[in-house]
């Protein structure tokens, strides 16, 4: 793995250096039953070690698929690369602020889709004039014109994901993290977003794609990371890694 990354073309854009992520959560039931005193601090707190020392380097023009079973740490890794989750130890370096596209429902559920488009666009760093200028493109890309005035909390998860995806790709990002966003759209939208991801990659960007669909991983990725229980189990050619992953499941 280390040799491979040294000989790859393109500058490094993301360096993940011995990354550990831990969550502290309040466990209930069995997990919490050893310490039951009401006033005791750290009552029922359980530490979940989601990512256990991951190291890899991503380069310009790479499109990296991330696979693994549910709860293996894929989304935690994406959130850490986007800077939305602070590592317990280790660090993530990037050439520019990575943008994460997740499947979380609304941005601001009380507000209409159109207001979310404007706000999302402003939060990405656009000025008010730029936000107004790209507004129509975003709405057209999302294909949600007729629902755009409804509060975002009334959207289905697929509609919300489409809108969020459209907002995020309206700006050129050097580093784009896509967390299963493609899986929720319909066929037409999926084709459109895959095309947009390829376009971003050609503009010397790096794209991470988390997906359970091996077909879309094989279609869009040039390298695949297999994550298992918080560890990087395999890193390399898409076909090889996907084959090994599928073999392990049977």
């Amino acid at each position: 793995m280390t040799e491979g990354s040294a000989t790859r073309t393109g500058h490094p854009t993301v360096v993940v250096d011995d990354l550990h992520i831990k969550y502290k959560t309040f466990a209930s039931g069995k997990a919490a039953s050893g310490t039951r005193a009401l006033l005791q601090r750290q009552r029922g707190i359980r530490v979940v070690h989601a990512v256990k020392g991951m190291t890899f380097v991503a380069h310009e023009g790479e499109s990296i698929g991330v696979i693994g079973h549910n709860g293996s740490g894929k989304s935690s890794l994406m959130r850490a690369i986007a800077g939305l989750q602070s590592p317990a130890s280790g660090s993530v370096f990037a050439s520019s602020q990575p943008a994460l596209l997740g499947v979380n429902a609304a941005l601001l559920g009380d507000l209409s889709g159109s207001k979310n488009v404007i706000l999302g666009s402003l939060a990405l760093g656009n000025s008010r004039a730029q936000a107004d200028a790209v507004y129509q493109d975003i709405v057209d890309f999302s294909g949600l014109e007729e629902f755009i005035d409804l509060p975002m909390k009334t959207y289905s998860s697929g509609m919300a994901a489409r809108l969020r995806f459209s907002i995020a790709v309206s700006r050129d990002h050097q580093i784009l993290l896509v967390d299963e966003a493609l899986a929720v759209g319909d066929k037409e939208f999926r084709a459109k977003s895959e095309a947009r991801i390829r376009e971003l990659r050609e503009q010397a960007g790096t794209v991470f794609l988390v997906s359970h669909s091996m077909r879309s991983i094989l279609d869009t990725c040039s390298r695949v990371l297999w994550i298992d229980h918080g560890n990087l189990k395999m890193d390399g050619d898409p076909q090889e890694v996907v084959d090994a992953y599928q073999a392990s499941k049977n």
Binding site: D17, D18, S86, S91, V92, S95
Partner: peptide
């Protein structure tokens, strides 16, 4: 590659720590 090599690689290529204040 040891962690320090990666840090050097990152700084050589002008990468910055993500999420840093």
């Amino acid at each position: 590659m040891t962690p320090t090599d990666l840090e050097a690689l990152a700084s050589d290529n002008g990468l910055e720590r993500v999420g840093a204040r």
